[in-house]
Amino acid sequence: MKKISVNPITRLEGHGKIEIFLDDSGEVVNSYLQIPELRGFEKFCEGRPVEELPRIVPRICGV
C-alpha cells in the first residue's frame, strides 16, 4: 500500500501531520491526522499560584 505524508501541516498554530494510505489503484483507503506534539500544560500548571495562570496559559497558543 502506498503512503502519502503531509508533514507538517502548515498555516495553523500547532503541529500536525497527515498520513494517507492508497491502494494499488490510487484510491484512498484510509487517512490519519496525527498530532506529534504535547507540552503538558495540563500537568505543569498544577502547583502554580492561581494569579499567575493568566500569564502562563496564554502561551498555550499565541496566534
Binding site: 507540552r39 503538558g40 500537568k43 505543569f44 500548571c45 498544577e46 502547583g47 502554580r48 502562563i56 502561551r59
Partner: peptide, 23 residues
C-alpha cells in the same frame, strides 16, 4: 526553555498520566 520548560518540574509519564488518564 520558556514556559514549556516548566515541564521540567515533572516527567513525561506524569504528563501522560494527567493528560490521557486523569483529565
Amino acid at each position: 526553555g520558556g514556559i514549556p520548560a516548566l515541564g521540567n518540574f515533572t516527567t513525561r509519564d506524569e504528563i501522560f498520566e494527567r493528560v490521557y488518564i486523569e483529565s
